[in-house]
């Protein structure tokens, strides 16, 4: 809306830059660095809660159908490779260790160590994704990908009894398998991208013992993605394996 002629303007845009104190990372609207750090940390934790609920919807669907179609879920699960699944679990756990060591290095101000651990974490993340991709390829080859080409002729071996399995019910297992691991892999990809950016920024010296909140928060994100996998592994790979 245009101003009336009687208006007197003394407006000068006040930018955040002019309000910044000596700490270049401190944003103008915070009282001090501690408040900023606490806010960022709480924000990250709340974001993690949204992630829990986001995956939670799928866990709920998984439970409902697992209870409904247990035999099909067990038969589907037995088609997955425990070796690959367990290896991936181990890869993720090791990557969580490297992340926590990265945060420790950031806190101690060891720039090169920090960059090193971040790089290793990205590599481990890519390893996970590679193994996951290998598993997906195998599913394609065996027509275990839900859709028009889906085929499932295996039976559920219940202590020697061969129970035939409805292919639609098995398709539900693989639908949820792909939905859950796919969404998890998407989070892994985001995490790898995040850590790559952080590694570059860390190399350029963006972080100091007084300010490494992004490294810390990305670490929290990575640990949560790890935790989700910790649940996915037994739920998807280990159904009724004793038979």
């Amino acid at each position: 809306m245009p101003d009336s002629p009687a208006t007197t303007q003394v407006a000068t845009p006040v930018t955040a830059m002019e309000h910044e104190a000596h700490n270049p990372a401190l944003l103008h609207h915070f009282v001090d660095a501690q408040q900023q750090k606490n806010a960022a940390s709480l924000g990250m934790w709340l974001f993690l809660v949204t992630e829990i609920m986001f995956f939670g919807g799928m866990f709920c669907a998984y439970l409902v159908y697992r209870l409904k179609y247990f035999n099909a879920f067990a038969a589907g699960s037995q088609q997955l490779s425990i070796a690959l699944g367990a290896t991936n679990t181990a890869v993720l756990i090791i990557s969580s260790v490297t992340v926590v060591l990265a945060v420790k290095a950031a806190e101690a101000g060891k720039r090169k160590v920090l960059v090193g651990y971040l790089a290793v974490t990205v590599l481990l993340g890519l390893t996970f994704l590679g193994i996951k991709g290998f598993e997906y390829r195998e599913k394609f080859e065996r027509h275990h990908v839900p859709g028009p080409t889906f085929q499932f002729t295996d039976t559920f071996d219940d202590n020697g009894r061969q129970i035939p399995v409805d292919s639609n019910e098995a398709q539900l297992f693989f639908s949820l398998y792909f939905a859950m691991t796919g969404m998890h892999a998407l989070h892994m990809i985001i995490g790898c991208g995040l850590f790559s950016v952080l590694a570059v920024l860390a190399w350029r010296g963006h972080y100091s013992p007084g300010y490494f909140t992004p490294v810390e928060n990305a670490g929290l994100y990575w640990h949560l993605v790890d935790i989700i996998w910790i649940y996915l592994f037994p739920l998807l790979y280990l159904i009724s394996r004793h038979s």
Partner: peptide
């Protein structure tokens, strides 16, 4: 998972997963 615990197989699996998750939350 390879030991037949009857209905307790998933319970044990989820229990271990939960312990692992708690360890990650607490220490990592």
């Amino acid at each position: 998972a390879f030991v037949n615990l009857g209905p307790f197989n998933p319970v044990v699996a989820l229990l271990i997963a939960t312990i692992k998750a708690i360890v990650v939350v607490l220490f990592f």
